[in-house]
Simulated assay, not measured.
Amino acid sequence: MLDTKINLLVIDDDDINIFIIKKIVEKTGFDIEMVSKSNGQLAIDYLKDAISRGATLPHLILIDINMPVMNGWEFVEAYQQLGIAKPVDLYILSSSVYENDIEKTKSYSAVRGFISKPLSIERLTELIKALEAKRS
């Protein structure tokens, strides 16, 4: 187990998906603090604020593609411009079945992979264990 809490940022405009992810987080048994934002711009603002305050940044970010204001791809581009030195595990979490979306994921160095919705307890546990291995 990690010595410290895992900070998870979920960027998704669907309240049902957010609710499901919260329930999955609870069932993993890990100490996870989850913050959700309904679009990429709100998430960028949240990250900029955390950086300016010297607050702990998320260890893991799950990003939906299709959202209002700033979509997932626009978020990733804006995120890369923040110049965050400590790498954060970013994953696209989408219901998209388009091969070009899955391939586009590979074109961003900041994005570690593509996860098809719905997120499962097993998949989130794998992501947390990978974080645990990197941090130990």
Rank of each mutant, 00 (worst) to 15 (best):
D3V: 00
T4Y: 12
T4E: 14
I6L: 14
L8M: 07
L9R: 03
L9G: 03
L9I: 01
V10N: 09
D14P: 05
I16M: 07
I16T: 12
I16F: 14
N17L: 00
I18F: 07
I20F: 09
I21V: 15
K22H: 15
K23R: 14
I24Q: 08
I24A: 06
V25M: 06
G29E: 09
G29M: 05
I32Y: 10
I32L: 06
V35W: 04
V35G: 00
S36T: 01
S36L: 02
K37Q: 13
K37P: 03
G40M: 06
Q41E: 14
Q41L: 15
L42K: 13
I44R: 05
K48E: 15
A50R: 14
I51D: 09
R53N: 12
L57W: 04
L57T: 00
L60I: 14
L62H: 04
L62D: 01
I63Y: 00
I63Q: 04
M67I: 10
P68F: 02
P68I: 04
M70L: 14
M70W: 07
N71R: 13
G72D: 00
G72Q: 09
F75S: 04
F75L: 11
V76L: 11
V76N: 01
L82Q: 09
A85H: 08
K86C: 05
P87L: 07
D89Q: 14
L90T: 00
L90S: 00
Y91Q: 06
Y91T: 03
I92H: 00
L93Y: 02
L93T: 02
S94K: 00
S95H: 04
S95Y: 07
S95E: 08
S96T: 01
V97Y: 11
V97M: 15
V97I: 13
Y98D: 13
Y98M: 15
Y98N: 13
E99K: 14
N100K: 12
N100M: 10
E103P: 01
E103R: 13
T105G: 10
Y108C: 04
Y108M: 10
G113D: 12
G113S: 08
I115D: 06
S116T: 12
K117C: 12
K117P: 11
P118Y: 05
P118F: 05
L119R: 00
L119K: 01
L119C: 02
S120C: 02
R123T: 11
R123F: 04
T125F: 01
T125M: 05
T125G: 05
E126F: 01
L127F: 02
I128S: 06
L131Y: 12
L131K: 10
E132L: 12
A133V: 13
